[in-house]
Every structure is written in C-alpha cells, then in structure tokens.
Design a protein around this nucleic acid. Structure first.
Lengths: 139, 139
DNA sequence: TATCTTATTGAAATAATTACAACTTTATTA
DNA sequence: TAATAAAGTTGTAATTATTTCAATAAGATA
C-alpha cells in the first residue's frame, strides 16, 4: 500500500465513506487530472486499466464523493455533469471554442448578499462562457 | 390582432425570427409566468389550449428564442434546462426544498475580472442553491 | 396569388443517468 | 483469523431529456 493510497483511505474514512480499490482509482484520477471530467471520460480512461469497471460504479462513486463533500458537480452545460475535486469557492469558465474549462477566483462575499439575507445558501456556482486566450490568438 | 400580439410580432421581426401563432403563445407564456419553466412545463400547459402542439416545436421555439437573444437557458440543475425571458445580468437561487427559482441582483463587475482579462466573456451565470425564507419558516 | 422559405408535427433515435438484483468486497467482531 | 453484516460493484434494462428527420403546413415576399 503506497503513500497516496493510504492518504486516500484516510480521507474516505474521515468522510464516512468506505474505501475500495475502484473508488481510490476514480478519486486518484480526478486528483491527477483537474480537467473537470465527465463520468464518461473517467470511465473511458480507467476501463483501460480496470477491465471490469462498470459505468454505474463510476456514477455511484462520484455521487458518493459529492455527498461526502469530496467533490462538486459542475453543470456548466445542460447535457452533461462534470466533476471537480476542488470544493473551495471558485468560478468556472468554459471556452466555447476548445471546450476546456478554466478555474478562476471569485469573491463570493462581493456577490449581492442583501437580497438573499433571509435565504440559507448551501451552494454557490459561477459559470462564465466565452473564448479563451489561446483560441482568441489562433483566429 | 390585439396589442400584445402586435408587440410580439414586432419583437420577433426585429430579432430576425419569423412570427407564428405557436411562438407567440410560447413567448406569451414565458412573459406571463416568470417561473423559469422547463420545456415540458410549457408544453404541458399549452397543450391544453393548442391540442396539436408538439414538444419538438416547444424545443425548436425555445432554441430560436435563445439564439435570437430573447431568452436565456438556466442550467441550475444538471438534468433539465429551464428558460428565462429576462436576459439581463442576474443570479438564480434554487430552493432545495420547494424547488422554486428566485432571481437576485448580481454585480457582475465585482466578480474577479483580473484573472479573466485575456478572455472574451459571452455569458455569465450565477447559480446559488439552498433554502428559501418560506421553507425555513415552515420547519 | 404564386412561390420560396421557414415552422410544425410525430415518430424514432440518441445520450446521460438511474434502478435493480445478483454477486463480491470491505469492515467488524468474536 | 474466521464468520458475519453492511456496503460496493456489475451489467442489463429502464427512464428521461433532447435531437433528428422527413412530410406537411403556414408565413413572408414579390
């Protein structure tokens, strides 16, 4: 059992979800590839190394992570859910040309809180779309 | 032809999309019911009065409105697209208890622009989730 | 009014996600 | 360490939102 495996097992235990080989691989993939992957992208990549992997398991694991607060869903597009292991407050920018998703800092306190004084806020998402610098240059 | 019909025909013409009875009814529904309805909600409501209405037509019309800048898509939930005739900058709050969606003002300039200096931004969405005051009281 | 373009319709296709039941693995405790 | 209970994994099938497509109808233009 290598160090990162041990670390992941600890994280799972602390969050009250059971460890398993599959979950560690899925979480490991997300930690290493911060591309905000879809469930299908994770499945396609891991099936090469875990031939018995089921797509249902990927969905189950991702849902477990989200419930445990280890990941968040990014619904910047209406036809697919993406997953992000960075659960701290930040915004997401999707390039309409290359499709890549960029993180950017957001000062959430600065977003009009007065109108929402009487609301309990559990989740904050800021989604921008446009063209990234790389794609602007290639035009 | 009543006044609002005439107004809608003008709006469509100005935006370069063709007028039709169905489109005017769909746009009329959205203008009267600012609940950020789904395509299905619009369809279910209008089929009572337009028995030949097709769900495909609802989707086609909504897409036409969005392309023409007459509506925006609200993807606050990953399994359904909602539509909003208010295309001005504002945030959306979804109550996780009653499901209602509330609008709230957002100062978009205040959202960290430095990191995105070199990006062209076409669309800005702010989605919050939590519990609305009404549901907090009923607890 | 004739004609061209665009909208509407409904059935079928697509694609993402979930439900479910059988089986396997993990964690717990004796 | 072995037995047991609880939870995870798998694959198929179901579900749901949305799109495709070809035929038909309606709107715009001259």
């Amino acid at each position: 059992m290598d160090v990162s495996t041990e670390v992941l097992m600890d994280i799972f235990k602390n969050r009250g979800i059971r460890s398993s080989y599959t979950r560690m691989r899925i979480m490991g993939y997300m930690a290493a590839n911060r591309n905000h992957p879809t469930a299908d992208e994770i499945y396609s990549r891991l099936i090469e190394e875990i031939p018995t992997l089921s797509k249902t398991t990927v969905y189950n694991s991702l849902n477990a992570f989200v419930e445990a607060g280890l990941a968040r869903v990014v619904t910047i597009e209406d036809n697919e859910a993406r997953y992000d292991v960075d659960v701290s407050d930040h915004g997401h920018f999707k390039c309409q040309s290359c499709g890549r998703i960029f993180d950017f800092p957001v000062d959430m306190d600065c977003i009009e809180p007065k109108a929402l004084e009487k609301f309990r806020i559990n989740k904050r998402d800021v989604y921008f779309k446009g063209i990234c610098p790389g794609c602007l240059d290639n035009k």
